[in-house]
């Protein structure tokens, strides 16, 4: 257990709870003759969350220092894949499904393991075209297929 993370999370959740309580006070407190309005539920939840966050914060002081060994995390491939996913998402609608998916998969395959780029190329091309064909032609769904400046 990472105590720092827990403390940070406790403060964050406390803030979220507080914001919910404040936010729910801005919501109408009754609706159509019922005394129980849409504000009650979020209000109760916000208070509960704050109480739990305080309890968690208290618990972090009780916990004995963790002796967990640090495992080595592979940050580099993760960051590349994360950024690739982000770019993929942002360009999906303008550049279209086939090209973005192909590029995304190819980049990720090579990031995971730098070998056999021909196989990676074939699999990513095959996957993107197959899904697109299946979805649009067989299942009649809508996907942005090709770059918008094409059509």
């Amino acid at each position: 257990m990472d105590i720092k993370f827990d403390r940070f999370a406790a403060v964050l959740f406390l803030a979220v709870g507080l914001l919910c309580v404040i936010g729910s006070r801005g919501i109408a407190s009754s609706s159509y003759g019922s005394v129980v309005g849409p504000d009650i539920f979020p209000l109760i939840l916000g208070i509960l969350l704050m109480l739990l966050a305080i309890r968690l914060f208290y618990e972090t002081f009780q916990a004995s220092g963790s002796t967990e060994k640090k495992e080595k995390l592979q940050y580099k491939p993760f960051l590349i894949i994360f950024i690739a996913s982000l770019l993929y998402i942002l360009t999906l609608e303008t550049v279209g499904y086939v090209i973005t998916t192909f590029l995304f998969l190819f980049v990720c395959f090579q990031t995971m393991e730098r070998s056999k780029w021909v196989t990676s190329f074939i699999i990513s091309a095959g996957f993107s075209c197959f899904i697109y064909y299946l979805f649009v032609n067989v299942l009649k769904g809508t996907l942005p297929g090709w770059p918008i400046w094409f059509s």
Binding site: G23, P38, L45, L48, L49, L52, L56
Partner: peptide, 30 residues
């Protein structure tokens, strides 16, 4: 491992569920 954390996650889920237009009154929340 921790009931407190599990309960917090439950509350967070419930709170996420309140986002949007309220079914009963039609008022937008959060």
């Amino acid at each position: 491992k921790s009931v407190t954390k599990a309960l917090m996650m439950t509350i967070c889920g419930l709170l996420l569920g309140t986002i949007g237009i309220d079914n009963v009154s039609g008022i937008a929340r959060f």
